[in-house]
């Protein structure tokens, strides 16, 4: 029974990582940049949920506001900080992203102080099936993340905007030649990534309801690891990497001998993958264009 609980926990943590990893991977694939402020969008989402839980007491309203607010913040960051650097050296963009990350963390600290805030969610009794005990929030996380991944896959494959995103990630000039505004495609990508980060913020809070200004750092870095393991730039890769990392984390936590080293084990997997398959599990080595 404990195996099943571990499995479900792993899948739900993995679902959270996958959702965040999708933001990293889509922005990397389409805007060709590593958005290191992505983790902090989770934190922005978390604080928004905290504020609106206090005002309304209703988690659904709080998360809806958080999604909208994170989309606005994400798109604004892209317009103000990243868009002027299009065509600049990747290092300049990377440093800017790190700067944005610190900016968001510092602003949160100024507004909310450095002591962690506790978000009070309604108490729901765990579901008991025989000796199997599952937290309802874990189940919600799991189901929601699966729905999000399915919807995103369908969106990318079957809508015009989705196809335009794939086209942009492959060949920006050819995409422009189709009459597609690549800048709008990038904006939409940031919007989707930020919405997913807000959702991830909610699910992470459901697991650990304390939020501080570095709330997004660890899930951010874990999800980035997941994106690289899966093959950065690849959407299925981010999903696979996220689930994989979540499973490893849950299993490792359950084995007392290695539990304290869980984070180290996860990053070790990254190193091994990079040594064996540098492009990641589902990543393709693209031909560099001249």
């Amino acid at each position: 029974m404990e195996i099943i609980t571990t499995l479900i926990n792993g899948l739900s943590i993995g679902g959270i990582y996958a959702m965040i990893a999708l933001g990293y991977t889509m922005v990397y694939g389409i805007a060709k940049m590593l958005n290191f402020a992505h983790g902090d969008i989770i934190m922005v989402g978390g604080y928004t949920i905290y504020v609106f839980m206090n005002i309304t007491g209703h988690p659904l309203i709080a998360v809806a506001v958080a999604v909208v607010f994170c989309v606005l913040i994400g798109v604004t960051i892209e317009k103000v900080a990243y868009k002027p650097l299009r065509g600049a050296s990747p290092l300049a963009v990377l440093i800017t992203a790190i700067g944005v990350s610190y900016l968001l963390q510092s602003l949160a600290q100024i507004i909310f102080g450095s002591a962690p805030k506790m978000v009070q969610f309604p108490d729901i009794k765990p579901i008991q099936i025989g000796s199997l005990k599952i937290q309802v929030y874990t189940l919600i996380t799991l189901v929601a993340s699966i729905i999000v991944m399915v919807l995103l896959t369908l969106f990318v494959k079957y809508t015009n905007i989705g196809r335009a995103m794939l086209a942009t990630s492959e060949d920006r000039s050819a995409t422009e030649l189709m009459g597609i505004n690549v800048n709008s495609v990038i904006t939409i990508t940031f919007a989707i990534g930020s919405a997913l980060a807000a959702l991830a913020g909610l699910f992470y809070l459901l697991k650990a309801p304390n939020i501080s200004n570095t709330f997004g750092s660890m899930p951010g870095i874990k999800a980035f690891t997941a994106a690289v393991i899966g093959g950065i730039g690849s959407i299925p890769g981010a999903m696979l990497g996220g689930i994989l990392l979540g499973m490893v984390e849950a299993i490792s936590y359950n084995i007392p001998a290695i539990a304290p080293y869980t984070d180290a084990i996860e990053f070790l997997i990254l190193i091994v993958i990079l040594l064996v398959k540098p492009a990641g599990i589902l990543g393709k080595r693209r031909r560099e264009k001249v």
Partner: peptide, 30 residues
């Protein structure tokens, strides 16, 4: 470029530049 294309001109670029990872159908739809 995308505004110019909207006015009714387009280009088959040197080296073709089809979207390699998309299907023939998806290329045409784009």
């Amino acid at each position: 470029c995308h505004k110019i294309v909207r006015m009714g001109m387009t280009q088959v670029p040197e080296g073709r530049h089809v979207f390699q990872e998309l299907t023939v159908y998806e290329n045409l739809i784009l």
